[in-house]
């Protein structure tokens, strides 16, 4: 077991964004995290990456309790993440952005440069490495975020909607990239809205709704689950109301 979150709850005032969620991830898996908007996926991500300490519950990574560890400690331990809205270092070049990540494992400039170049080749950003990050569009920024976090040499990578807003071509090449990352031995948790992406990538899917994990299993089975369909289509009240009206 690489990561185990047990009974994680995150409360914002009176609102429970994540409620008693337990998930466990094995080394080498690609796990999809799906659910309707506001289901608590991103909040769960922020708990797992140290961005938001959970209100209660426990998160163990590789045998260590990381529940209250800082984001930078998570990065050092090998938990990397991207953001739902990409946050690149705008004034720095693409190469420099990736070097910031590479400096985590290489103190020297030359070593960090070499490590960053490797990642740039792998992610296809090498030809435009000297452009400022601000010159990139959304697909480029998402790719750069992935490159930057890969340079920190994570063991577990959390991708938060890394494919949202991309067109069909870009999605195909992004899926390829995710596969290449997985082939490097990196375990992945992927939050995604596009179902076909999840179906083609994830071996296992966790479904979030209203802060809870409502289903878990192989992608193909989960999409047939009645509760999942209800969560997505929001038919709960409809179904309940119809027979009641028919009774009298």
């Amino acid at each position: 077991m690489l990561l185990e979150a047990s009974a994680v709850t995150k409360q914002f005032g009176g609102f429970r964004a994540v409620s008693d969620a337990s998930i466990s991830i094995d080394e080498g898996e690609i796990v999809g995290l799906i659910g309707p908007n506001g289901a608590g996926k991103s909040t769960m991500f922020n708990c797992l990456s140290g961005d938001l300490p959970p209100t209660s519950g426990r998160i163990v990574y590789d045998g260590r309790d990381v529940t209250r560890a800082s984001p930078e400690a998570h990065a050092r331990l090998g938990i990397g993440r991207t953001f739902q809205v990409p946050v690149t270092f705008e004034d720095m070049t693409i190469l420099e952005n990736v070097m910031v990540g590479a400096f985590l494992r290489h103190a020297g400039r030359n070593a960090a440069h070499a490590a960053a170049m490797d990642i740039l080749e792998m992610t296809g950003l090498a030809p435009i490495r000297d452009r400022p990050a601000r010159s990139l569009g959304t697909p480029g920024r998402k790719r750069l975020e992935i490159a930057r976090v890969l340079a920190t040499r994570p063991r577990l990578l959390l991708l938060d909607e890394a494919l949202a807003g991309l067109n069909a071509n870009e999605i195909a090449s992004a899926i390829q990239l995710v596969r290449a990352i997985h082939a490097r031995g990196i375990t992945l948790i992927v939050v995604e809205h596009v179902m076909e992406v999840i179906m083609s990538l994830a071996q296992r899917v966790l479904v979030f709704n209203q802060g809870r994990v409502i289903a878990s299993g192989a992608a193909r089975d989960v999409v047939q689950d009645a509760e999942v369909i209800r969560a997505y289509l929001g038919q709960t009240q409809w179904i309940a109301a119809a027979p009641a009206a028919a009774v009298p």
Binding site: S49, D51, S70, P71, E72, H74, A75, R76, G80, R81, F83, V87, T88, F89, E90, D91, M92, E96, N97, M99, V100, G101, F103, L104, A107, R109, A112, R148, V149, A151, T152
Partner: peptide, 26 residues
């Protein structure tokens, strides 16, 4: 400018949150 500290400073100027996610002790 050329050292790790310089890269870290420029990154945290742009976004502390992103910098920390990459292990920068802000």
């Amino acid at each position: 400018q050329r050292s790790r500290l310089g890269f870290y400073l420029r990154s945290l100027r742009a976004s502390e949150r992103a910098a920390r996610s990459l292990g920068v002790p802000v």
